[in-house]
Every structure is written in structure tokens, then in C-alpha cells.
């Protein structure tokens, strides 16, 4: 009989304590961020999709078309091409296309680039109805950015 009442009161107490905790939280401020209206600033190391980096002065891509990034990529997302203009010492990038649909954001390409030609963007609002929208022409994006 003692056991019976112990169980009854112990159980009831645990239920009341539980109610106390939820009401305590109810009156506290909310912790969520109202996403489309507010948005987060990504941390410095955030890894978005990759982006070509331009030279500070000329704005042209720093890429020398060595192809390391392409070889390092586990998913084969990077397609690039370049040519060597007459008389120039280095190759010049003619196209750099990232197939973001396959990219796993692993960062191997950025690490493998010895010339600091690519970096991570801070973009995370990436959703869309069409697959084609995520095949990025990074060279064009660079040109648009540097105006």
C-alpha cells in the first residue's frame, strides 16, 4: 500500500515538474531567427560553392589553368579550359564551369590550388526549381563582379 501511494505521488510530482519546465520556457523569449526577414551572417570559414578570385589590380582571374582543382575534385564538378596567347608566359583561363549539382562542398579544390585562384563564397540561399540554374559559369560571375 505504501508503494502504491509512493508511485502515485511520485508520478504526479514528476508530471507537475514537467509542466513547470514547459511554462518556464513559454514565457522566455524565442530563440529562432525569422529566416526570410532576418538572415545570418556566415562565419569566416563557411564553405559555400567555390568562386574564382580576381587579381586585386587587374580584376582578371588568378587561375593559371594548371588543372589541379579539376583533378582533386572527387565528384568531377569542375570543367575548365584555357589557352596560351601568343607571346604570353602563362596560360589564360577561357572558361571555368562548376557543376554545383554534384559538388559536395568538400573544399579539396580550394586546398589543391597553389595559386589562390579559388575561394568559397558565402552564399547559402541556394534552391531552385531547375537543375540548369546550378551550373555556374564562374568566369562570367567573376567578370560581373569586377564589373
Amino acid at each position: 500500500m505504501g508503494e502504491y501511494f509512493k508511485e502515485l505521488f511520485g508520478g504526479t510530482k514528476s508530471l507537475v515538474v514537467g509542466l513547470g519546465i514547459t511554462i518556464k520556457h513559454m514565457v522566455k523569449p524565442v530563440v529562432t531567427l525569422q529566416y526570410p526577414h532576418e538572415s545570418l551572417k556566415m562565419s569566416a570559414r563557411f564553405r559555400g560553392h567555390i568562386e574564382l578570385l580576381g587579381d586585386e589590380e587587374t580584376g582578371a582571374s588568378k587561375c593559371v589553368v594548371c588543372g589541379m582543382c579539376q583533378r582533386a575534385c572527387p565528384s568531377g564538378c569542375i570543367a575548365l579550359a584555357g589557352e596560351k596567347p601568343e607571346g604570353a608566359k602563362k596560360k589564360v583561363l577561357t572558361s571555368y564551369v562548376l557543376d554545383f549539382t554534384k559538388c559536395s562542398l568538400c573544399g579539396q579544390c580550394v586546398e589543391s590550388c597553389k595559386f589562390g585562384a579559388i575561394t568559397f563564397s558565402k552564399e547559402y540561399n541556394l534552391a531552385g526549381p531547375r537543375k540548369e540554374a546550378y551550373i555556374f559559369d564562374l568566369k562570367k560571375r567573376l567578370e560581373e563582379r569586377s564589373g
Binding site: 513559454m26 524565442v30 530563440v31 529562432t32 525569422q34
Partner: peptide, 13 residues
């Protein structure tokens, strides 16, 4: 709304 605030979020808004 009640569920939202108990869970520290806003609910429909």
C-alpha cells in the same frame, strides 16, 4: 502559438 512559445519559437506569423 502555445506550442510555438513553449518550444521557444513564434508559431504562425
Amino acid at each position: 502559438k502555445v506550442a510555438g512559445h513553449i518550444q521557444r519559437r513564434i508559431g504562425p506569423k
